[in-house]
């Protein structure tokens, strides 16, 4: 910083004033540099045939060959469909459920019940995905699972859940909602609490029904929050929760056409054939697309309502 060529006295003085502030930020940025920025050099591996002897920089350049592999693979379309499809589905489902539950919770008259409902929304959020996969197994186990016990009790044939792809889009959406809906819900609740009560009062006096007040007051007020949440999720639209798509379906083969996402594909590729170049290529693509999406949507949001943009 001292190498700045034309240090106006004023500027130098100003800098000196701010020096303590920069120093405060230093530890975090040193850490980010080591933990996040230095490994970025690994992204060049996307264009290399990596060998241990060559290391990151010395390995042979292969241009876009690693990307070619990704695009030539005939499963790519399927994987992209799953990755994007599930993310969009999860966004919509969690949003609709979150908003609905938030409205319902705020409408509960009994204070204790309301408190209880509100705080139980987040319990699944604090549990690790491994434990969640244990719980799912307890329901879906083909032999001992609760669902098959129920089916048998109703005189129906048990279903081999982990081999039947049909129900899995629903199962995954349900598990994801079970674990994640509380997060958005809490957010919507606080937005609803922030709405000026006199608005409702006025609406009531002019004879609006409950549904009408929700439609014309609550929902419009929730819009900014919804946009922000969507924005946050859009950046990760090419990423998927590895635990959800790998641990929860227990890596079962027959349902892979509905559970395979970009992340599980990379992991499986890495385990069966160590191909570090290909992994780097896939994660570079993931990052780039996510990055561009966030920038684009942030710009869009900025245009529509400045205060909702993230940066």
């Amino acid at each position: 910083m001292t190498r700045q060529k034309k240090p106006l006295r004023l500027r130098a003085q100003r800098f000196k004033n701010y020096l303590p502030l920069y120093l405060m930020m230093l530890p975090a940025f040193i850490y980010l540099f080591i933990n996040n920025y230095l490994p970025l050099s690994g992204l060049v591996l996307a264009f290399k045939h990596y060998t241990v002897q060559g290391g990151i920089w010395g390995s042979e350049n292969v241009g876009f060959q690693n990307f070619m592999f990704l695009f030539q693979n005939k499963d790519t379309a399927l994987i992209l469909r799953n990755t994007l499809g599930y993310n969009l589905l999860f966004m919509v489902v969690n949003m609709v459920l979150g908003v609905t539950l938030a409205i319902l919770i705020t409408e509960i008259g009994n204070q204790r019940l309301r408190k209880l409902a509100q705080s139980s929304m987040l319990i699944p959020f604090v549990v690790s995905i491994i434990i969640v996969s244990y719980m799912v197994r307890a329901f879906l186990d083909p032999q001992a699972g609760l669902l098959n016990t129920l089916l048998k009790a109703m005189g129906k044939n048990p279903i081999s859940w982990y081999d039947t792809s049909g129900p899995w889009p629903y199962i995954l959406t349900f598990v994801n909602a079970w674990k994640g809906v509380g997060y958005g819900c809490i957010l919507y609740i606080s937005s609803i609490m922030g709405i000026d009560p006199t608005l409702y009062e006025a609406a009531r006096l002019s004879g609006a029904s409950k549904l009408q007040t929700i439609r014309y007051i609550t929902l419009p007020f929730l819009k900014p929050t919804v946009i922000t949440l969507l924005l946050l999720n859009l950046g990760r639209i090419f990423n998927s929760d590895f635990g959800l798509f790998f641990q929860v379906p227990q890596n079962s083969g027959l349902i892979m056409d509905v559970t395979q996402t970009l992340d599980t594909f990379i992991y499986r590729g890495l385990i069966s054939l160590p191909n570090i170049g290909m992994t780097a290529a896939a994660s570079l693509l993931q990052s780039c697309i996510g990055f561009m999406l966030v920038i684009a949507f942030n710009a869009l949001t900025r245009k529509m309502s400045r205060e909702n943009a993230i940066f």
Binding site: N36, L40, G42, G235, T279, V294
Partner: peptide, 11 residues
């Protein structure tokens, strides 16, 4: 840093 990462191997 939220959006970009270098992957497991370099880290």
């Amino acid at each position: 840093t939220i959006l970009f990462n270098g992957g497991l191997v370099p880290t």
